[in-house]
Design a protein around this nucleic acid. Structure first.
Lengths: 349, 349
DNA sequence: CAAGAAAATGAGAGCGCTCTCAACGCCCAT
DNA sequence: ATGGGCGTTGAGAGCGCTCTCATTTTCTTG
């Protein structure tokens, strides 16, 4: 109630009858503070409503308590232009922010261009300005090794979401390989023999992993890999529609299609409707991601749910740990989930 | 290339042969710097790749270059739990962040509880820790006047998104009244005479505005206000379904329904399908918001598009202006859009 | 119970910037 | 010329915190 604008560490120190430094030790949970003193200081903090100022803490040479989440600028702009959301953001907010909150950190979203030169410049600027304690890269920046180097040069812990097989950093992802396998297994169990796969852009390691998982599951089932059953799109509706049209025009068309993301799965649904193919009676469809809209498509899509919130939470947590303690890189494989809805059924053929 | 970790203002000053203070004037676009000197300093900044450190600038007693965007914690958690996204976040990211970027500011999302006591405490903590230059409130916190007071006490500019008729602050919103009127007008033009309205929670001023707009448009058309044609939900699917079921069970059921958000509109679609009512042949549906999933419902929904990105951009811009120059409150009414898709058609009855 | 080690505390400097204010030029009017 | 005024520059202090290191207190242990 005193002066709401600024209760500083000095006020607390005075109130508790200790030095600034002791208060600092208490708020940082440092060692070597007598229990009685600690309690007294915490009492003073409570009474005065003291909250350490982040900027000052950063200036003191310590941590900034800032975690940067890097999203793609182009994608954000493009998605908006076509009325599409960035399905990751809100879930990242959930997982990342709640984790930050617990630890007194703050999550800061930044947009960075896809173009490597731009990305480098922007990243450098942001790092200098904010001096974050950790940076989370999301696709497509996960694949940008130059950014990783930039961070390494400044000794800033790096995390990635949804990207596996990276040489460094903290990487949280689901097993794309297994997820594709699970999708195939689900369809095989429904007696499907002709299963198509519409992959996302081949430039993403995750896409290739999924294709591998698909192919291996097909092979393991003793099925031959049919010509044209794997198509590459770019995650967009149009590319999905093209791929679906192509696949469904095959002499022996697939009776089930797995799409690399929800948007392309919607496109499959659309193309199927155009051709009078009922889903799931005449064609089963599985999508990857399971973003919010999926529940309301007709029929609602069976989908592989990517645990985005959990990925964000994991990366954030490890990043904070890395920034305080010893650097600890590593891979964290989080479970996906196959959500069964109404777009898959027993093969009629 | 020198020492990537920290090029400070001092280095630039030395390189340009001027004092720290002059460099400061240049980066802050201050007056009273000779053009030749300004150019020389900017050259040095460029050469050294100098980026002012935000924490230090804040410490200097100046701005923090941080804009806080407050979202509801409960809603974020709940939405996630039911697999729903927070449709606002990604669009806010688009509008707010791009605006911040231009001005060298940063957008920081924070979650705050709905409960007033919690909200007050959390807000106080965040303000002390971050000392932002501006705060953006989103629903439901827009309605919390206590938060507004808290900000006023600290002289931090306040903005609100999607909330009208507020006594203070910078408020950007669409005309909910007009939007509801436009929805009604669209249906009237399609010869509908029995039009229902499923409102969101009555605790939101925006909801009431929409009901007012609806009622006035109905009255202006010379139509009587039928019993049970206005129902209140809480923006959830279930509440929308309940309201729709109720309305469609009326002796003289509406031939068109306007829903207060997309989620409730999906519920109307669902209930209609259950009862064998074809949309749009037997029932026209219009929704509010036009979030990404709307395009993929069956049929795709005709909707009032809320300009969330533009709202965020406007509030952010005005907030930055307010924090630098004179405090300037005011209302900024942004245009909505009626997006015609396939859920509305000429009345068959 | 002394003496050394370990724990607890405080003092001082400094992080990178902006603030205030004093000092320096410069141009014009007298 | 010569002073007042303005535009321009720099010096010094300080923002709130943490760092390092010196100092004091407390606990061991022979």
């Amino acid at each position: 109630m005193s002066r709401p604008a600024s209760v500083t560490i000095e006020h607390v120190a005075a109130a508790a009858g200790v030095s600034r430094q002791t208060v600092s030790r208490v708020i940082n949970n440092g060692p070597n503070v007598k229990p009685a003193v600690r309690i007294r200081v915490m009492g003073a903090i409570e009474d005065l409503g003291y909250v350490p100022n982040l900027a000052a803490r950063r200036m003191g040479g310590a941590r900034s308590f800032l975690i940067l989440a890097i999203n793609d600028r182009q994608r954000t702009i493009d998605n908006w232009r076509v009325g599409r959301g960035n399905d990751w953001v809100d879930q990242m907010l959930h997982g990342g922010m709640l984790t930050c909150e617990e630890r007194g950190y703050h999550l800061l979203f930044e947009l960075i261009d896809t173009d490597p030169a731009m990305a480098r410049a922007q990243m450098g600027r942001v790092l200098s300005a904010l001096s974050p304690d950790g940076v989370i890269l999301t696709p497509p920046h996960t694949e940008n090794l130059e950014l990783a180097q930039l961070l390494q040069a400044r000794a800033i812990p790096l995390g990635r979401m949804g990207s596996s097989h990276m040489p460094d950093g903290i990487n949280a992802f689901m097993s794309d390989f297994d997820a594709a396998g699970a999708a195939v297994a689900h369809l095989l169990a429904l007696k499907h023999r002709r299963i198509g796969f519409i992959s996302g852009s081949a430039q993403y390691a995750a896409s290739l992993e999924r294709v591998r998982g698909y192919e291996e599951a097909i092979a393991r089932a003793g099925l031959a890999q049919a010509e044209g059953f794997v198509q590459y799109g770019d995650f967009s509706f149009d590319s999905g529609a093209r791929a679906a049209a192509c696949m469904l025009s095959l002499p022996a068309a697939p009776t089930a299609i797995i799409a690399g993301n929800d948007e392309m799965a919607f496109a499959v649904l659309h193309v199927a409707a155009d051709r009078g193919l009922c889903v799931p009676e005449a064609l089963s469809v599985i999508s990857f991601d399971d973003t919010p809209g999926v529940r309301f498509s007709v029929p609602p899509l069976t989908a592989i749910r990517q645990p985005i919130s959990a990925l964000a939470a994991t990366v954030t947590e490890k990043l904070i740990a890395a920034s305080t303690g010893t650097p600890m890189d590593g891979n964290f494989v989080l479970p996906f989930e196959l959500i069964r809805r109404s777009s898959t059924a027993v093969c009629a053929a």
